[in-house]
């Protein structure tokens, strides 16, 4: 039999848990952000220490190596500027043709770089925390990408931090296109159901049974739903199979981004 203080404590905890779980979602989100704010100083401190360690490692490099890296960066920068000018010309041509054929214009997103400061401490979610928040203009449901491809979307925003739910989490379904320009199949990315050891694989479902899928095909966002802009790389087809006695198809997609090694990401802001 429990003692009286045990009963009192149990009753208080049950009531408190019930109240917390039944709070409105907005109130819960604000409360979560307020409680997670106690970790902000430590996140900042660990980030600063990491930068200091990285900067001090540069002092170990020889002058010749530094000059070599600088020259390589200079060449890469020149090539990037060349591609950028070409892309600017294509963009102007695209806008002229859209105006000519009366097609609505697309307004580009502004990427803002953010650093990953934390990952979800629980094993059954795939989320990360970045060091950009409402003070930097981050909004809920903003797309998060790297140069390799899609990372996920912003699920919660506080003043100085945001929580990002990754592709492959049950809370982050992405509408995608797969195939070449002639025939593009549309599907939805869902968490992987049959790949227990490979976290880079997700399922692509709701494909028509006549889909022609080949391993290696690029999967990109379709732009449907208004969350993820069109054309962001998600991954490549790894495998496909028929489901439901041949009624539809499912495929496995190998993600373009290595979610275990995220350090810096870009938040796409309108």
């Amino acid at each position: 039999m429990l003692k009286r203080p045990h009963y009192i404590a149990l009753g208080v905890v049950i009531v408190f848990t019930f109240v917390l779980l039944k709070l409105p979602s907005r109130a819960v989100a604000n409360l979560k952000l307020a409680i997670s704010g106690v970790f902000v100083p430590f996140f900042g401190l660990s980030g600063s220490l990491g930068e200091m360690a990285e900067n001090s490692s540069y002092s170990l490099l020889s002058r010749r190596e530094l000059i070599r890296q600088l020259q390589w960066q200079h060449k890469t920068n020149q090539l990037s500027q060349l591609y950028f000018r070409q892309a600017e010309e294509w963009k102007r041509e695209n806008e002229r043709l859209r105006d000519y054929f009366n097609i609505p214009r697309q307004y580009p997103f502004k990427p803002k770089m953010a650093r990953v400061v934390a990952r979800d401490p629980v094993n059954w979610w795939k989320t990360i925390t970045i060091d950009r928040g409402s003070r930097d203009g981050v909004l809920t449901n903003a797309a998060v990408v790297t140069i390799a491809g899609l990372v996920g979307r912003v699920s919660g925003v506080s003043f100085a931090q945001s929580q990002v739910v990754l592709v492959g989490d049950p809370d982050c379904r992405v509408s995608v296109l797969v195939g070449d320009d002639r025939s593009r199949e549309q599907g939805v990315i869902a968490p992987a159901s049959s790949s227990p050891l490979d976290h880079a694989l997700v399922d692509l479902s709701y494909l028509s049974r006549n889909s022609k899928l080949v391993p290696g095909q690029i999967v990109v966002t379709s732009g449907m739903g208004g969350v993820f802009p069109k054309g962001i790389a998600v991954g490549q087809i790894a495998d496909s199979r028929s489901m439901g006695y041949g009624l539809y198809k499912e495929a496995q997609v190998r993600l373009a981004v290595n979610m275990n090694r995220l350090e810096e990401v870009f938040v796409l802001m309108p």
Partner: peptide
Amino acid sequence: GVLSFTIVALCGALWMDSLSANPLGVSLL
């Protein structure tokens, strides 16, 4: 005592759930 582990459970659960996608308070009980 009772109060000691109750406070540790309360704070640990709220801190963990605040950094996670868990509903707040689900780890407390």
